[in-house]
Design a protein around this nucleic acid. Structure first.
Lengths: 144, 144
DNA sequence: TTTAAATAGGATAAAACTATCCGAAATAAG
DNA sequence: CTTATTTCGGATAGTTTTATCCTATTTAAA
């Protein structure tokens, strides 16, 4: 469904949110370890999220990544996916047509519209707070 | 959502079905032109569909691709997707965890389950006949 | 039987995605 | 001020996906 980069990005964001709740800044090394992702590749993705102002970074000793506490509940999965994979999950045609809309639909346009809209709704309504709390309470997991 | 190969495979199958209805066998060249896909790459995909017995091929002059008329209505999108992309659309975790189930869910497991199941249902219930008839009646389109 | 038209399939190339490496810059602590 | 730590960013490598090329094989028609 998503690219590897996006998967890492979502998991990293959740882990950062989880710690930012406790006012703890986390390093790349720790993030990569906790979400089981390649460190250098994860660094690139985090840089991307920083550029998109979804997470904050602090350079130097005792630096790392964090999310402002008051923002955690308002950051939606859609923002993360959008920052990394772009927005063709929403707009793209299921069969790759350049133009595909109600007036000029591809053969599976109607079938995909439903599913795509639900995916869109899910991504736009799911926020980092929910996901982080489930990790915290041991309901869900970021690795293995 | 799907790979390029899968997109081409679905469109090609629809175009072949459309013509097989009229008892017309179509060539690779014609298919690629009508679905706006790269010819040589499309050839590979068609070979794959032939190996999976989803379509038939006839070599030599006046050869081409066809689908037995009586099979058109029973070929589901799921079979095509499965032949080309495999079945990890169904089984894979949304965040790439090796193990992700109700007992050990990833953070977005519940959210994805719903969407994945609907996608699965859609693919398993949509058949080539429906799609081909919409093309024939000008309701939907295979290119531009 | 020869020829032209097609698919089959192996080899290869190009592009995109995933991943790694290393030096630069920033920052806190000693 | 120096040092250790840590992110940033450019360069590069590996892998997968997408795409192309070329030859072999098959088949129908002349």
């Amino acid at each position: 469904m998503f690219s590897k980069a996006c998967e890492y990005g979502i998991k990293a964001s959740i882990y950062i949110a989880l710690n930012s709740y406790d006012g703890v800044r986390v390093s790349l090394k720790e993030i990569a370890k906790e979400i089981n992702s390649p460190e250098a590749f994860t660094a690139k993705i985090l840089q991307d999220l920083v550029r998109h102002k979804i997470i904050n970074s602090v350079k130097g000793a005792y630096g790392g990544f964090e999310i402002e506490k008051r923002n955690i509940a308002s950051i939606k999965l859609a923002q993360i996916v959008n920052a990394i994979d772009g927005d063709n999950i929403y707009h793209g045609c299921g069969l790759g047509l350049d133009v595909c809309d109600a007036n000029h639909p591809c053969p599976v346009h109607d079938q995909f519209i439903t599913i795509r809209n639900e995916l869109k709704y899910m991504l736009e309504t799911t926020n980092l707070e929910q996901l982080a709390l489930d990790i915290k309470s041991g309901v869900s997991f970021l690795k293995i």
